[in-house]
Design a protein around this nucleic acid. Structure first.
Lengths: 113, 113
DNA sequence: GATCATACCTAAGTATCCGAGGTATGAACT
DNA sequence: AGTTCATACCTCGGATACTTAGGTATGATC
């Protein structure tokens, strides 16, 4: 993967995480695997990125945490707060707009021969 | 603009710059204004971001520089190198793929009432 | 001759991401 | 019983990027 594309992916993590949480509570470790599998490995953030991100979302009150014991093992489940839901909605709208703008700016990719 | 969206925009800068250079040579100051105007202010990177970026692209041999005097004033014009063109093509393909994957993961934005 | 727009640049501080570690538990196998 | 594996959490250091806020210099305008 080239340098420019690497930069591109950064920052999408937060959006994907918020989106995933909308469908229901998730714990970090499972969320990571789920996103990785669903996108066929296209999006796979490291733990070193995910855990600090979740903490950051928490301090911004976009997500809330809840302890649960599953199969005798502790898990920290994250859920969207109302503020998180609101932010997610904003994000999706902005993302759509951004995408439209980008599509206007960017010439289409040449088909691969 | 909310925090998550801010993160989103970061990293798109390089792609946009490379794309702009494909159409022809540009100098930093003019490029900045052009992108800002063309996207109606949606993408506006600061000079502190643009100049270091161009230098980084140059050390990676993705762009080449050329001095020109226009209206008696010095300008540094940047052009895509073959390697830069190749990288841009890759980027566009990856971006398209990324976008498809993201569209699958992300629920569509609710229409604004 | 003062001011504005142009045109380049850098430095300090903040933030993010990744890689590489660490800890601890339950399950499975030997 | 002991080892190994998968799960599940976490942190720290280094590299990189972006913003803010500056600095310098020239041509044009008033």
């Amino acid at each position: 993967m080239n340098w420019t594309t690497v930069q591109l992916r950064k920052g999408l993590t937060a959006l994907i995480v918020l989106d995933a949480l909308e469908a229901g509570a998730w714990y970090a470790y499972g969320l990571r695997r789920a996103v990785h599998d669903q996108t066929h490995g296209l999006f796979s953030f490291s733990e070193g990125a995910l855990y600090p991100l979740l903490h950051a979302l928490r301090t911004r009150r976009l997500v809330a945490v809840q302890r649960r014991k599953v199969h005798g093992r502790e898990r920290l489940y994250y859920t969207l707060t109302p503020k998180g839901q609101q932010t997610l909605d904003e994000c999706r709208r902005e993302w759509a707009g951004l995408n439209r703008a980008l599509a206007q700016v960017l010439r289409p990719a040449k088909r691969q021969p």
